[in-house]
Design a protein around this nucleic acid. Structure first.
Lengths: 115, 115
DNA sequence: TAATTATACATAATAATGTTATGTATAATA
DNA sequence: TATTATACATAACATTATTATGTATAATTA
């Protein structure tokens, strides 16, 4: 499988990014979305996902909204009001970090766009 | 200071990359090089550096060459013969991982090159 | 000259964060 | 009917970083 070591520290920002775009998401949906976006290469395990979600709630960034589909709970996570602001900051930070990695490992230029 | 969380898992590949380019490097030199390349933003601590170097030696990727500068030891690290091959693989892997992050966090396109 | 900073190695205690394994349970599909 | 997919969650463990500590020489500054 994909080398996921580098994903250390990126799960929380990734969750924030996805929820910021989708409005609200539930845990299982997040794992599927990430699988899809990564062409099945990245599989977020439950042992990483749920503690991360709970921490984001504890930090006040996310709030939850439970919905019952038949007899099964679906726990949606969405950005809190203050979370919307911190989301922007956190995403800027992670983008800066990724740009740094791109620089350190000489991945630039990634895209040549011919006009 | 810089958010270094994302650097988790990147120290060993970074060491490999730098040694691969420079031929040989010693610990302190690596910390200084990374500082320089990152505009002082990334500071590799000794607690991360030396265990990482020792592990790379244990894994057979690096070998050492001690040099005495006056009364002070300078321990150079260089790629072993087999390490030269694994270096290429490891660097390909990390580059693939970083590209994945770039994709997941929508950092593309980073560079527009007009022809 | 004395004190501080830079160079240079290293390890231990602790914290953070992931993987693997396990647990419970419903709904859908083979 | 058995398996897979959906859906939550936690515990044991592994990995890897930070912070603190330790030792010591060389160079610079007060």
């Amino acid at each position: 499988m994909f080398s996921q070591e580098i994903l250390k520290g990126t799960i929380k920002p990734l969750i924030i990014k996805l929820i910021n775009e989708e409005g609200k998401m539930y845990g299982y949906q997040i794992t599927q979305k990430v699988k899809e976006l990564s062409s099945q290469k990245i599989v977020i395990t439950e042992g990483a996902l749920y503690p991360a979600l709970h921490k984001l709630v504890d930090e006040g960034i996310l709030i939850t909204e439970s919905e019952w589909i038949g007899n099964r709970e679906r726990k949606y996570y969405l950005l809190s009001e203050s979370g919307k602001q911190t989301a922007v900051k956190k995403l800027d930070e992670i983008k800066e970090s990724i740009s740094m990695l791109v620089h350190l490992f000489d991945l630039k230029p990634l895209v040549y766009d011919v006009k």
